[in-house]
């Protein structure tokens, strides 16, 4: 398979370059460097999940692939990038696994499947804009939060909508199966399900729908791409606390995740990553949020 891919790449590259100027898309990244720790012998207590993972040298992560700034992948084989991903990489590196290597399996985790993925052990950790809620904590473990955000509204630049309250009975777009969609309906607007947020934004620009709504961090990322055509408005009408998901079978992971996150908060990696992926030009990164206490295990 590898060999064949190399052959095809070469052929494709040749073809592309002969047809036109050679594109070089997909080769830049300004995330902070994360390199694996090199000594995990005796770092974790025997019998803990962390020790097992470090021993095996392999880990599976559930992540987003189509949310710029948070979790986004260039091609199906590449390592994803984004703020969520950086948090996952810190955890992976702490287990002495190289986050850029093939030892890490990145799997797309949708809103519908994140809990089942963890329960069935398909992935070891979920870092996929995973809001911490009481319902979810019944099913899986959630550590964090490492980011606080809230739902806002994205409208065309010339719109006089000021908040979700101005959109009673109007159509508002959000991703299919997301909490955002449910919140929109709860606020009295008509939810329009869409395959992706990129598609929603396109609908707003086109005037197909008057507005879209989801986490402010996602909206800011989209607004930046449209360069003044759209704006983010309104107070946050929900509070989302984004955390890392792990399986309830391994409660010891909670404290470990919190420790790694705390370290990232303190040594500036968290801020660096936030600025690289979500920060607007000339804006300071916010203070890192306070982590939830882990239940004594």
């Amino acid at each position: 398979m590898r060999r064949m891919k190399l052959g095809m790449t070469a052929a494709a590259a040749l073809l592309a370059c002969s047809l036109t100027a050679c594109g070089d898309a997909g080769e830049d990244d300004d995330s902070p460097e994360v390199s694996a720790e090199d000594d995990c012998d005796g770092k974790f207590d025997d019998g803990t999940r962390m020790a097992e993972l470090a021993e095996a040298g392999e880990i599976a992560i559930g992540n987003r692939v189509d949310q710029p700034g948070l979790g986004q992948q260039d091609t199906p084989d590449s390592v994803p990038v984004g703020f969520d991903i950086d948090m996952a990489k810190l955890l992976i590196a702490d287990l002495c696994i190289d986050p850029e290597s093939d030892s890490v399996t990145w799997t797309e985790a949708t809103s519908e499947q994140r809990e089942t993925f963890l329960q069935d052990g398909v992935v070891d950790l979920v870092a996929a804009s995973y809001s911490i809620t009481d319902e979810r904590r019944e099913l899986v473990g959630q550590a964090g939060p490492y980011m606080l955000t809230g739902q806002q509204v994205l409208v065309p630049a010339d719109s006089d909508v000021e908040s979700i309250a101005d959109l009673q009975g109007e159509e508002v777009c959000a991703q299919e199966g997301s909490t955002s969609l449910e919140n929109i309906e709860a606020e009295g607007a008509v939810g329009v399900p869409s395959a992706s947020y990129a598609q929603c934004a396109e609908d707003v620009v086109n005037g197909t729908v008057p507005a879209m709504s989801t986490d402010g961090s996602i909206l800011l990322g989209l607004a930046a791409q449209y360069d003044g055509e759209v704006k983010v408005v309104g107070p946050e009408f929900s509070e989302e606390r984004i955390g890392i998901g792990y399986s309830k079978d391994y409660p010891e992971m909670c404290q470990w995740i919190n420790d790694v996150l705390t370290e990232a908060f303190e040594d500036g990696t968290w801020e660096e990553s936030f600025n690289a992926h979500l920060g607007a030009e000339g804006e300071e990164a916010p203070e890192p949020p306070a982590l939830d206490e882990c239940a004594a295990s």
Partner: peptide, 16 residues
């Protein structure tokens, strides 16, 4: 149109 003339993406389109 850049991705459609970039080797990385052409490979992805063809293989994946």
């Amino acid at each position: 149109w850049e991705p459609f003339v970039s080797p990385v993406y052409i490979e992805a389109i063809l293989v994946d």
